[in-house]
Design a protein around this nucleic acid. Structure first.
Length: 837
DNA sequence: AGCACGCCGACT
DNA sequence: GTCGGCGTGCTC
């Protein structure tokens, strides 16, 4: 037999292995969907999944090159045909390899790989002097117990790349290596104590009592076991956890061991679930009957998040009662702590059967949930982030995509660049599972599909139905930054205008809290030289370094590069300049990040308690908890934050929301920037209004250099739907999504001229196949170099009503022709970003 | 992705 | 002359 495998790599070809007939393979039947371990390449071992089996060898491969399968990891198939179909669709649609999709779909705990173990050869005698680095390496090994380290551990201990020295020692025979599969997941094992089979009767037990007549402590322990078994009604066949029986006493552990020695007790090692819902069954509460989902896709478009949550809870309860599984996707796990109330209500709706699957859940738990789902069809609710769309839920009755407009549903940076909402829509279509999208500010795509009758709008959820005109009573004003500067009212280096300052003072006097939005991380986005006019850029990317005061360093937001703020300008060497007869540093921090705004606020309002919310303050679970403690303490007066504020529980008693620089939000070079800005501001307004029970008297102030921007006029109307309709007609004219399905093809390489010429050639090949009206020229993107990779971009468009197959075939064919025509194409990576955000 | 092999510049 | 960097090709 031969098996075609999916290997967790970015390879497009197919790889076959021989199924041995000896050993375990004779007893256990290998089936499609099982995991196997195979050797791949010179050294490594990988976990592969059997895609299909065949009695005949693959065509076009020399049989002598086919390696045997090393071992089988599963008793029964882990992956079903339905899941393969999903993986294959994702791979095809997003132009990625099946292996990349498999890596994404399975938790890493289920994909063990080999690691290299390095051992000291004991018989090695050094007959010539070795260089210090080699001695250091041997020393590190000699000091380890077993004289063995993994390659990573070795590298870590030495603190430098030791491959050269290692090769030297390997060739001398001083060290040897071995590839060992590293187990990434181990079940948690708990030890239980049971009566051995000889003593599971009353007769036998009285014999045991006689036997123990001179060991009263052991007899007492046996008695304790019997009492506990009696209490639990588990009978003589049952078992009791050893830690319970021993009650943390070391002496009791010795007694248990003695009874095992006498053959009265036996120890059983049983795997213990890490994910079992441990809460007591929740009290039955009345949850209203959910509105029936009559369409394949429905949109819950509510005004307030509470209404949205109620709809979701109702739908979950309904499906769980019907015995189905429900998947609830959220854009990010960072907002879960703030949604504790919602989650506890969901837990009740799911009758306690709720599981979590997101990056804050550890690997072992994620692995156990995956395994649990492959073997159980119990009705349950799974809450997760985008990767959870690949969970093997086999009795799925509903997928909910909460806050469907959020960009976090789209995977960035690593293939496949999938969008979890769109994958959910495909799954729903394929298996006739209803899809519920929910939002207070739906994406233009969702509204487009409602308008053309593809999605149903849940009747109870429409804001229009309940909304009074201008019920969102916000006093919206703009502050003209140019005017404030010209009037000399803005002090140099300030981001808060006097007008905003007065409004803030007013809000504080009225005992209200203030929310300031500045959508820029760090302290200052640029450092400019007053002598030469240059700016400090990242050495690896074509962007400026931003200054972060918290870490006191310049940071690149694209590649993560860090350096201290230089004393002298790196391009002209000037240290200081004289300005109005005073000397000051030549390098000047320019622009306003959220940290700088925070500093300015603290100076202006030294009595106020200021809280900053940005990616740094939401970095870890611990920092999130600290943040929530400060919020709950209730004495925060002013909150300064980036867009991340919208997931945090900060909406009580807000009297003023101010956007420090509206222009930085709108100027983002993307056709969706206005949509995003409107959604963000609208959500701030809605959350504030909701927290005040709709009686808010909140002010919204926009600082801008362009008060005449049409966006502001649209925002003043507070009519989200008409704003989106207007955006849609613009996009139709400009041939953007959702009228046209777009693909950004990014070409990356180290040599700029090679990337440029290959990109042009590729655009040409695509134009030949798809036509000049569908394919753009190769263009320099907004950031043309990241991490020393030069980038060019080609934009492809296809009408939304046209199938993607022709386009994908053209992509593949053009790629092939490119590599055959241009040898230089090997030096360029091509990335397909399908439906980019 | 990760490894081996081969070419070419830097330093002994 | 050797070392070591990096570009290139291959993996059933």
């Amino acid at each position: 037999m031969y098996a075609e495998l999916i290997l967790p790599l970015a390879l497009s070809g197919q790889y076959h292995y021989r199924v041995p007939e000896q050993g375990i393979f004779a007893e256990q039947q290998l089936l499609s969907g099982m995991r196997v371990v195979v050797s791949f390449g010179a050294k490594r071992f990988y976990t592969g999944i059997v895609r299909r089996l065949s009695p005949t060898p693959p065509e076009g491969v020399d049989e002598r090159h086919i390696k045997p399968i090393e071992s089988i990891l599963d008793q029964k198939p882990l992956v079903t045909e339905a899941e393969f179909a999903l993986w294959e669709w994702v791979a095809h649609y997003y132009h990625a390899s099946l292996g990349q999709v498999m890596r994404l779909a399975l938790p890493t705990g289920l994909l063990p790989e080999s690691q290299t173990l390095v051992t000291l050869c004991p018989e090695y005698q050094s007959d010539r002097p070795l260089e210090p680095k080699a001695l250091e390496l041997l020393d590190a090994l000699a000091q380890t117990k077993g004289q063995t380290l993994t390659m990573e551990q070795l590298r870590h201990r030495l603190g430098y790349d030791c491959s050269r020295v290692f090769d030297l020692l390997y060739n001398l025979g001083a060290v040897q290596t071995e590839e060992r599969l590293k187990t990434r997941y181990k079940p948690r094992v708990k030890v239980y104590v049971a009566l051995s089979t000889d003593y599971r009767s009353t007769d036998a037990l009285s014999r045991a009592e006689e036997l123990l007549s001179r060991a009263p402590k052991q007899l007492e322990m046996l008695g304790r076991w019997l009492i506990l078994a009696e209490e639990r009604g588990i009978g003589l066949e049952g078992c009791i956890a050893r830690e319970e029986l021993a009650q943390h006493s070391p002496r009791d552990l010795i007694l248990i061991r003695a009874l095992v020695g006498r053959g009265i007790f036996v120890l059983q090692h049983l795997a213990e679930s890490r994910i079992a819902p441990h809460e007591d069954p929740p009290p039955i509460t009345e949850i209203g009957k959910a509105e029936e989902l009559t369409h394949p896709v429905s949109l819950v478009y509510t005004r307030y998040s509470r209404e949205r949550e109620e709809q979701i809870i109702g739908q979950v309860a309904q499906k769980i009662r019907e015995g189905y599984q429900v998947l609830l996707l959220s854009p990010s796990a960072a907002s879960f702590p703030a949604q504790a109330q919602f989650i506890s209500e969901l837990t009740r709706a799911a009758l306690g059967k709720i599981y979590h699957y997101h990056p804050l859940i550890n690997e072992a738990k994620r692995t156990e949930l995956y395994l649990h789902l492959t073997s159980s069809e119990e009705a349950c609710l799974v809450m997760g982030t985008r990767q959870a769309i690949f969970l093997p839920m086999r009795r799925l009755g509903l997928i909910i995509v909460d806050q469907e407009q959020e960009y976090l549903y789209k995977q960035q940076h690593s293939a496949p660049l999938f969008h979890a909402r769109d994958v959910a829509l495909w799954l729903g279509h394929k298996h006739s599972i209803p899809i519920l999208l929910s939002s207070e500010t739906p994406s233009a795509e969702a509204i487009f599909n409602v308008l053309r009758g593809k999605y149903a709008l849940l009747a109870k959820s429409q804001p229009e139905a309940t909304e009074q005109p201008h019920a969102l009573a916000f006093d919206l004003k703009t502050i003209d930054l140019v005017e404030q500067r010209e009037q000399g009212r803005m002090p140099y280096g300030a981001s808060i205008s006097p007008a905003l300052r007065e409004a803030m003072e007013g809000a504080l006097r009225a005992g209200k809290r203030i929310l300031l939005l500045q959508n820029r991380r760090g302290y200052a986005p640029y450092a400019l030289c007053d002598a030469c006019g240059g700016r400090i850029g990242c050495p690896h990317c074509n962007v400026s370094l931003a200054y972060h005061s918290s870490q006191r360093c310049m940071q690149c937001h694209y590649c993560g590069y860090e350096q201290p703020l230089p004393v002298a300008c790196p391009s002209c060497g000037t240290r200081s300049v004289v300005y109005r007869r005073t000397e000051r540093p030549a390098l000047r921090l320019v622009g306003y990040g959220v940290e700088r705004v925070e500093e300015e606020i603290k100076e202006l309002f030294d009595q106020a308690e200021v809280l900053r919310i940005d990616s740094e303050s939401l970095q870890s679970n611990k920092r999130i908890q600290e943040l929530h403690q400060r919020i709950e303490a209730g004495n925060v007066d002013i909150i300064v934050g980036t867009q991340l504020i919208k997931g945090q529980p900060i909406w009580d008693n807000i009297g003023l929301i101010a956007v420090v620089q509206l222009d930085t939000i709108l100027a983002y070079p993307d056709f969706r920037s206005e949509e995003r800005a409107y959604q963000l501001l609208m959500q701030l307004l809605l959350h504030t209004s909701e927290a005040s029970g709709g009686e808010s008297s909140c002010q919204l102030l926009l600082q801008t250099a362009r008060p005449e921007h049409p966006f502001i006029e649209m925002l003043k109307r507070r009519d989200y739907k008409s704003f989106i309709k207007q955006q849609l007609s613009l996009r139709q004219m400009l041939r953007f999504a959702p009228f046209w399905r777009m693909t950004y093809i990014r070409l990356k390489g180290t040599d700029e001229s090679v990337v440029e010429s290959i990109a042009q050639a590729f655009a040409e090949l695509l134009i030949q196949r798809l036509g000049a009206d569908r394919v753009s020229d190769a263009q320099e993107p907004y950031v043309a170099r990241i991490d020393n990779q030069h980038i060019r971009e080609i934009v492809c468009r296809r009408p939304f009503s046209e199938s993607f197959h022709h386009e994908r075939e053209a992509f593949a064919a053009a790629e092939q022709e490119l590599t055959s025509l241009y040898p230089l194409a090997k030096r360029v990576r091509i990335i397909f970003d399908i439906d980019p955000l």
